[in-house]
């Protein structure tokens, strides 16, 4: 039994707490350190997985890197020069909350293991309830990061249309992204579904290619209830942290950090392209 933690999970939310609990249960001999506050020091040299809320991710990642520890993080908003450099040289890697959905974890593996043959395109749409429009940016970044993990090629061009969809703030992002291997991604996020208690909404991911088409609609994994009060769904997703930690391990093992680099560029260039209303070359 080792004394040093094998993994540090950063963040103080349900996701990080569950991840720590699951990781401990999965590997009882390797303790996991739950790093709840940036004010606390990093206790070991174990790799860091940042599952914190979006506002805290950059801080945790920077603190880990300052201590010489590589990190895998959920998407980071507006990374500074140091963090960008860390992504460029592979010390910091990015994953998406969507990697925590078992269907999408499987689709990502299939997309990477050659199932589709010559890859043509990736179509991804995420529609969320109108009352969660203020989470739109995070939803876009998660979808962008996930899509880049299906392609694993450098980004070359981005076009963006945004729309308020009849409201007073941006409610839809319509992104076309071209990659160096010619794959074209169509990424659409819009707050258009009726008000709901949960932000999850409806997600569709399709990867097209010469040998196969992969299609995932994760919310179809649910129970449909038709009752006196109408139709409702009760979804039963597996605990996302298991799949997120698996993804973090995979990312650390990758030789290159192309997918994280493309995700970072796409997250940034989308604003530039939207403002310019013109395609931006990368």
């Amino acid at each position: 039994m080792s004394n040093q933690p094998a993994l540090t999970i950063a963040g103080d939310n349900d996701l990080s707490t569950n991840a720590a609990r699951h990781a401990i249960a999965a590997v009882p001999d390797d303790p996991v350190y739950l790093w709840r506050s940036i004010a606390d020091p990093v206790v070991s040299k174990a790799p860091v997985v940042v599952l914190a809320d979006v506002a805290e991710r950059a801080g945790f990642a920077q603190a880990a890197l300052d201590a010489g520890i590589p990190a895998v993080s959920l998407p980071i908003k507006d990374p500074d020069v140091d963090l960008k450099q860390a992504i460029a040289d592979g010390r910091l890697r990015l994953m998406s909350r969507l990697h925590g959905l078992p269907t999408l974890a499987r689709l990502q593996q299939d997309a990477m293991n050659g199932t589709v043959g010559r890859r043509y395109g990736v179509f991804a749409s995420h529609r969320i309830p109108v009352n969660f429009a203020d989470e739109l940016d995070d939803v876009v970044d998660d979808l962008v990061t996930y899509c880049c993990s299906l392609i694993d090629a450098p980004l070359s061009r981005v076009s963006v249309t945004t729309s308020d969809l009849g409201t007073s703030e941006t409610a839809g992002w319509f992104i076309l992204a071209r990659f160096a291997d010619e794959t074209i991604a169509t990424i659409e996020v819009a707050a258009v579904l009726p008000e709901a208690d949960e932000p999850a909404g409806e997600l569709l991911i399709e990867v097209t290619g010469s040998d196969a088409v992969l299609r995932a609609a994760p919310e179809q994994q649910g129970v449909l209830i038709r009752g006196a009060e109408g139709v409702s769904r009760s979804n039963w997703y597996a605990e996302p942290s298991d799949f997120l930690l698996q993804r973090a391990t995979q990312l650390r093992d990758l030789e290159t950090n192309t997918t994280s680099l493309s995700a970072m560029k796409l997250m940034q260039k989308r604003f530039e392209a939207a403002t310019a209303n013109q395609a931006v070359e990368v």
Binding site: G121, L176, I184, S210
Partner: peptide, 21 residues
């Protein structure tokens, strides 16, 4: 309109893939 296209298949010499907004 914003669009991207490519030749995806092997049997054609025109864009057989198109996406646009």
């Amino acid at each position: 309109v914003q669009a991207e296209s490519r030749i995806a298949g092997e049997c054609v010499e025109v864009a057989d893939f198109l996406t646009y907004t």
